[in-house]
């Protein structure tokens, strides 16, 4: 049965692609690109990290008059990104559909039968990565990573929190525990808000959070940051050590990049690489990276796709190893 399905799927895919090839797209002159309205898909709701990045990019594209036509931004949320990227997948070959990536771009296909993986899409480029901050409540007397390791050893097993199970947060907690040699009970949360109040209420020993959402608590000395998972220390917290300082590896981060639908024409990909190279040079973009505490990490085209492949394989292995999938 499965085989038959596969055959049908492949057949229809071939038909669909050839139909597309024969359609308007082949006739379009590469030199005219772009001369149509752009459909910009955000696979998450407004106000989230992905949304803020997309809207910043669109604002820069419009302010600098880099995109000559209208850009229609649409939040297509649902299914942890499955809906939004599923929409991009369905626009195969269309150079006027575009979307931004985040951690779920790699993890959702591992968790559910989305019908797509990162391999299906045409990568434009990676601009930055989102790393996390490991924090403990300030009334815990733990002031450094060494204190934490000592505390964890005394406790036997520590209770740590993060968002979701098949997710970056879980991998970071599991990897840190394994490499530093302590035992954890991982408590998954659905929302940042509930996780932070759980930490403040003294039910959790530590959590990992996005710097942007937890820095307010750090400044108010409600929580103490012990470790940052990025490669370079966080600019606003230069004294907080990074995972690298302790030789920890495999501390995954969220890829903040841009993708086109499967089989998007090469000229469109080239156009976007050229244009985005100008975008990342702007002051507004640098300001955005600073405000949201992202780590700049620029890779274009094939390098970006290779990076996604490498991250996805790493994620899958780690998740399997820890029994999450």
């Amino acid at each position: 049965m499965r085989k038959i399905c596969c055959v049908f799927a492949t057949a229809s895919l071939v038909l669909a692609t050839s139909a597309c090839g024969a359609g308007t797209l082949a006739e379009e002159d590469a030199e005219d690109y772009p001369d149509q309205e752009l459909d910009w898909t955000i696979a998450f709701g407004p106000g989230g990290g992905n949304d803020i990045m997309s809207r910043t990019m669109v604002e820069i594209l419009e302010n600098e008059e880099l995109y000559p036509n209208d850009i229609v931004v649409e939040n297509r949320e649902g299914g942890s990104g499955a809906t939004g990227w599923g929409h991009v997948l369905s626009q195969s070959g269309d150079p006027y559909t575009i979307s931004t990536t985040s951690g779920s771009f790699l993890t959702t296909p591992l968790q559910a039968d989305t019908g797509w993986t990162h391999e299906d899409f045409t990568g434009v480029g990676l601009f930055a990565t989102d790393d996390t901050l490991f924090v403990v409540p300030s009334d815990s007397d733990i002031e450094s990573w060494e204190d934490w390791l000592e505390f964890a050893e005394d406790e036997g097993t520590v209770t740590v929190g993060g968002i979701g199970t098949v997710n970056v947060d879980f991998i970071i907690q599991a990897e840190l525990a394994e490499q530093a040699g302590y035992e954890i009970d991982y408590v998954p949360f659905n929302e940042e808000g509930q996780m932070q109040s759980a930490l403040l209420s003294g039910t959790l020993d530590a959590t990992v959070s996005n710097p942007g959402s937890v820095l307010g608590q750090v400044e108010a000395e409600e929580v103490t940051p012990l470790l940052y998972t990025g490669e370079e220390p966080l600019e606003v917290l230069p004294d907080v050590p990074t995972g690298g300082d302790f030789d920890y590896e495999n501390l995954v981060s969220m890829p903040r990049g841009l993708i086109l639908p499967p089989d998007a024409p090469d000229h469109a990909r080239e156009w976007w690489i050229d244009t985005m190279q100008q975008v990342v040079e702007t002051e507004e973009w640098q300001q955005y990276l600073d405000d949201n505490h992202l780590t700049e990490d620029v890779r274009w085209g094939d390098d970006f796709e290779a990076y996604l492949e490498e991250s996805a394989t790493g994620l899958e292995e780690t998740l399997k190893e820890h029994g999450a999938i």
Binding site: G45, G47, D51, I52, G212, S213, G216, V218, A220, D291
Partner: peptide, 15 residues
């Protein structure tokens, strides 16, 4: 959603 708005306007939510 409002919190997301705070971030967009460059405000640091927190105590």
């Amino acid at each position: 959603v409002l919190l997301g708005g705070f971030l967009m306007w460059g405000l640091q939510p927190g105590p």
